[in-house]
Amino acid sequence: MPRVWDVPVRDTTRVRDARVATEHAASRAGLDEQRTATAALVATELATNLLKHAGGGRLLIDVVAPPVLAAGRETDRMVQIVTVDHGPGIADVAAALGDGFTTTGSLGAGLGTCARLADDFDLHSAPGRGTVVVARVAAGDSPAAGDSPTAEGLPPVGGFPAAAPDPAPRVRAGGVNLPLGGAEYSGDAWGWVRAGDLVTLMLADGLGHGPEAARASTAAVEALRTAAHLRPTEVLGALGTALAGTRGAAVAVAQVDTRAGVLRFAGVGNIGARVYEGGSWRHLVSRPGIVGVHRPATLREDEAAWAEDRVLVLHSDGLPSRWSPAPDTCRTSPDPAVTAAVTLRDASSSARPVRDDTAVAVLASIPPDRP
């Protein structure tokens, strides 16, 4: 079962904990010694920044799929380091990313160093609401998020025009996972797969929490890898077989046909699903039941147009039932994991903690004017 490391950073002793947790994650992701050291340095700098500038916060360290699934590299894994705080925010993000910037008399190399060392790096900060940072470090031969190949800009080959651009890399996915009470394993899990023009995002919430719930959600992620070519209702059918013998899970499946510009959705259980379209959020409805234990007799599959302004958010029931996305949640960053972390930050606080394992997964198109 995949580990998730939740490191609350309230004093300097937890900076070392963040570094050690990142080293363990790097081992699971297959990073070599040099890349492991890079990931550990990024985690150390980000944890130190939490103390200096936000009065503390938390690091969430996980092993995740890349935000873009390059053809032939669907099994690549990266160490993802996320910081979430409810501090004062950063007044000038661009300046904070420059070397030498400091508000505490330090060397001011933290965020700038992290941005250079990480394969992926982005952040979102709002005055009075806090800051989230997402950094990923991959194995040395793994492409960064912006390096996934497309046919755009390729010269003619053999006298013929290059193949039509591959639209799938214009769709990115990311997520965050927070175990209840600092547990080693989260009962929630998310994953995404690609089969040609189809990209499919799934979020599973194993019944209850703890290792047995984690086994159920992990089984769902593993089964998804062999179902990338199926429609969402068919995916749920395959997962029902894979989860038999486990506690079962609530599961939501969203699939984008990037060539046709169509979003398909189906879900069983209480996974929240919302899509941003036309300037507003719309709920996508799941059927009652538990995948692997009690499947509905019929499954409904919703369809909607998918365009460059669309954002899809899936979340488990660890978020408050009355949670509503903030106006800027839909486009906080081109990195969907930042959007997921902002969702987690804005839906919870020390006065309103999450009530269960909590995962948020986001699927989004990248507009042509953004890298």
Rank of each mutant, 00 (worst) to 15 (best):
residue 188 D to F: 03
residue 191 G to A: 12
residue 191 G to N: 08
residue 192 W to A: 10
residue 192 W to D: 05
residue 192 W to Q: 04
residue 193 V to L: 07
residue 194 R to C: 13
residue 196 G to I: 05
residue 196 G to V: 05
residue 197 D to Y: 06
residue 197 D to L: 09
residue 199 V to H: 04
residue 199 V to R: 01
residue 200 T to K: 03
residue 201 L to H: 00
residue 202 M to V: 11
residue 202 M to P: 00
residue 202 M to W: 02
residue 203 L to M: 06
residue 205 D to G: 02
residue 205 D to Y: 05
residue 206 G to H: 01
residue 206 G to C: 03
residue 206 G to E: 00
residue 209 H to S: 08
residue 210 G to S: 07
residue 211 P to K: 03
residue 211 P to S: 14
residue 211 P to W: 03
residue 212 E to C: 03
residue 214 A to S: 07
residue 214 A to W: 01
residue 215 R to P: 01
residue 215 R to H: 06
residue 215 R to Q: 08
residue 216 A to K: 06
residue 216 A to T: 05
residue 216 A to V: 06
residue 217 S to R: 00
residue 218 T to R: 02
residue 218 T to K: 01
residue 220 A to S: 06
residue 221 V to A: 02
residue 221 V to L: 07
residue 224 L to K: 00
residue 224 L to F: 00
residue 224 L to S: 00
residue 225 R to Y: 10
residue 225 R to M: 10
residue 226 T to C: 10
residue 227 A to G: 08
residue 228 A to V: 09
residue 228 A to L: 12
residue 229 H to G: 13
residue 229 H to Y: 11
residue 229 H to Q: 12
residue 230 L to P: 05
residue 230 L to G: 08
residue 231 R to P: 11
residue 233 T to G: 13
residue 233 T to C: 14
residue 234 E to T: 13
residue 235 V to M: 10
residue 235 V to S: 04
residue 236 L to H: 02
residue 238 A to V: 12
residue 238 A to T: 11
residue 238 A to Y: 04
residue 239 L to R: 01
residue 239 L to V: 07
residue 240 G to R: 03
residue 243 L to D: 05
residue 244 A to C: 06
residue 246 T to D: 03
residue 246 T to P: 01
residue 247 R to G: 13
residue 247 R to I: 05
residue 248 G to Y: 04
residue 248 G to I: 07
residue 248 G to R: 04
residue 249 A to E: 02
residue 252 A to E: 07
residue 252 A to S: 11
residue 253 V to A: 06
residue 253 V to M: 07
residue 253 V to W: 00
residue 254 A to N: 08
residue 255 Q to F: 10
residue 258 T to W: 03
residue 260 A to H: 09
residue 261 G to W: 15
residue 263 L to W: 13
residue 264 R to V: 04
residue 266 A to H: 07
residue 266 A to P: 12
residue 268 V to F: 04
residue 270 N to L: 11
residue 270 N to M: 14
residue 271 I to V: 13
residue 274 R to S: 13
residue 275 V to N: 00
residue 275 V to A: 08
residue 275 V to L: 04
residue 277 E to A: 15
residue 277 E to V: 10
residue 277 E to C: 08
residue 279 G to P: 10
residue 280 S to L: 09
residue 280 S to C: 07
residue 281 W to I: 12
residue 281 W to Y: 08
residue 282 R to L: 15
residue 283 H to K: 14
residue 283 H to D: 15
residue 284 L to T: 11
residue 285 V to P: 04
residue 285 V to H: 15
residue 286 S to I: 02
residue 287 R to E: 15
residue 289 G to M: 01
residue 291 V to L: 08
residue 291 V to T: 02
residue 291 V to F: 05
residue 292 G to M: 06
residue 292 G to C: 01
residue 292 G to T: 06
residue 292 G to A: 09
residue 294 H to V: 12
residue 295 R to T: 13
residue 296 P to V: 07
residue 297 A to L: 13
residue 299 L to N: 04
residue 299 L to K: 04
residue 300 R to G: 14
residue 302 D to S: 15
residue 302 D to G: 13
residue 303 E to A: 13
residue 304 A to I: 03
residue 304 A to D: 07
residue 304 A to C: 05
residue 304 A to V: 05
residue 305 A to C: 14
residue 306 W to N: 08
residue 307 A to R: 12
residue 310 R to F: 12
residue 311 V to S: 14
residue 312 L to S: 05
residue 312 L to E: 06
residue 312 L to V: 11
